[in-house]
Design a protein around this nucleic acid. Structure first.
Lengths: 157, 157
DNA sequence: TTCCTTATGTTGTACTCTACAACCATCTAG
DNA sequence: CTAGATGGTTGTAGAGTACAACATAAGGAA
């Protein structure tokens, strides 16, 4: 790239990198759902994420999930309904506030999550098998940094 | 499994990095469509990608798009139909093979793609504004490397 | 040539994910 | 106790996708 810094901070090399980042993130996003569905048809990308959140948090309210994932409460309600019907979560009425349904993983929910999580982990490990430790660490760091910025945008609305 | 064995090449630090990569890529994928829809409602992530491909390739067949993006031909057919109805692409009957419809961007297609592409570019540039040039370049390189590996998996099926 | 097979697309159908709006139940402030 | 806020569910609708059935066109084989 011979074009250097036209105008201060916005150089050509920067633009090239940003273009690539944009394109590759997009390509990944486009592929992700289908890949997830192919790997474990019993748990969509969203369901997996929600279950993971429930496990990490040890149960939470539908509203919190909706806020955290920028999803409509109706979407969460239906996802939770499906997961409940599948026997992976249960809704417990909050004794302190009867409007609230606290979602908890069932035993089976923990199992399925662990199993699907293991499958995903294996897939990522294979995909990243040739990477050096420092490269992995740095890539992970970049992704954290990127997503933190993206998250702030959503919150700023 | 929270305890890892640290035998041979599979160290704990590696696993931690891979865990983060997995989680963050997933988080990004979950958010991408909605973000794209919010930024430019007139062109979904998929439509944008397809138009971009057409521009880059200078027109191609529906089958090629389906193969390249691992989408069903019916999906491509309908996406193409919608884009045609929106006046962004046209289907030209291939004179050499009357089964084939070659998809081309219209003038308006080029315009809309350029406009949406610019909006996306700005969004990414803002999101990445604080990054140093070398960090951008390295992040871009990691993403290319990652997606290349993911792509090989799909092809291997 | 005629027939069988393959390749390209389109259409019918169905399912998931999602949003928005209307609604009900419950809580909290005044 | 009433008003408004909060948490959730349900009705409705639209996008995106897949799979199966089909129509049409090529390309060979007999």
């Amino acid at each position: 790239m011979t074009e250097r810094d036209r105008s201060g901070s916005g150089g050509g090399a920067r633009d090239d990198s940003i273009e690539i980042i944009q394109r590759e993130m997009t390509a990944f996003a486009r592929r992700a759902r289908a890949t997830a569905a192919r790997m474990h048809p019993e748990l969509s990308l969203v369901s997996f994420t929600l279950l993971g959140h429930l496990e990490y948090q040890g149960g939470c309210r539908a509203t919190d999930l909706a806020a955290h994932y920028t999803l409509d409460k109706s979407t969460i309600s239906r996802q939770a309904g499906a997961l409940e019907k599948a026997g992976l979560v249960e809704r417990r009425l909050d004794p302190a506030d009867h409007r609230v349904h606290v979602l908890h993983l069932t035993e089976r929910g923990h199992e399925v999550l662990a199993q699907v999580g293991a499958a995903r982990r294996v897939a990522f490990q294979e995909r990243l098998a040739e990477w050096s430790g420092p490269d992995l660490a740095q890539f992970a760091g970049y992704l954290l940094r990127y997503n933190a910025a993206a998250e702030r945008e959503v919150e700023a609305e």
